[in-house]
């Protein structure tokens, strides 16, 4: 039981609720109609073509979020541009951030 500022969180209660919900869903599923025995189903109809093997349709990692990265291609192009992999740039980023911190922390005190 974890008390937070706005409420509480108890994993035990959550697990009990999860099991109850799962049992209810399982019972409801079990009450459904058992139409087909195994092996009776028709093959899927793909414009008269044979169904390709599982190996041929497995989506590889590089293609999974293609739509996401394509939509945000502007952002990703920029990110690829700054992740150069050159050690000089890494140090430049470090000094640049130190300069920004300097402007934010030290400069106000010096001016006033």
């Amino acid at each position: 039981m974890l008390e937070t500022t706005g409420g509480y969180w108890s994993p035990i209660v959550w697990i009990v609720a999860f099991i109850v919900a799962f049992l209810m869903a399982y019972i409801m599923w079990g009450m459904g109609e058992k139409k087909h025995a195994k092996g009776e189903q028709e093959k899927p109809f793909l414009s008269g073509q044979d169904e390709p093997s599982k190996e041929a349709v497995h989506v590889r990692a590089g293609n999974i979020y293609w739509g996401f990265t394509e939509t945000l291609s502007g952002y990703y192009d920029f990110m690829k541009k700054i992740h150069t992999g050159i050690i000089n740039d890494y140090v430049l980023w470090f000094l640049g951030m130190a300069a920004i911190f300097f402007l934010a922390i030290v400069l106000p005190g010096v001016i006033m």
Binding site: I82, F94, M97, A98, V106, G109
Partner: peptide, 22 residues
């Protein structure tokens, strides 16, 4: 303050905070 700037920058880089995470 200058010491604080250097310490924050160095340790933030060592823990991998963007944009010093590369």
């Amino acid at each position: 303050k200058i010491a604080l700037v250097l310490l924050i920058a160095a340790f933030a880089m060592k823990c991998g905070a963007v944009p010093m995470h590369m």
